[in-house]
């Protein structure tokens, strides 16, 4: 197994009802380091994928996400391993 370089995390966010999620997603994508943003159904409204070489950089991105208007709460999920179809 080849060792991956850097941290790969998903950040789940719950948003305020008054702000459209598409509008929040657009703002989130402007934050450097955010790879992709998904709008979801279910307990989480938005899932954000972040890749970075360092913990400190991920924390900077987390702070920027939490400071984004419409974000109510976040939870961080660390990717331990990835499986893809060949």
């Amino acid at each position: 197994m080849a060792m991956e370089s850097g941290l790969n995390v998903f950040i789940g966010a719950v948003t305020e009802e008054k702000t459209p999620t598409a509008q929040i997603a657009k703002k989130l994508l402007a934050i450097p380091g955010i790879e992709s943003v998904y709008e979801l159904t279910g307990e989480l409204d938005i899932l954000i994928q972040v890749k970075s070489p360092s913990v400190s950089k991920i924390n900077e991105i987390l702070e920027a996400i939490r400071a984004t208007e419409g974000i109510e709460k976040t939870t961080t999920y660390l990717v331990l391993d990835k499986h893809v179809k060949n």
Binding site: M1, M3, E4, S5, G6, L7, N8, P53, S54, V55, S56, L80, D81
Partner: peptide
């Protein structure tokens, strides 16, 4: 629970900077 998963894998998963 997650540690058990990691131990079940052989080798190194990823590296990162502080």
């Amino acid at each position: 629970k997650h540690l058990k998963k990691i131990k079940g894998k052989k080798g190194d998963l990823f590296e990162f900077e502080l």
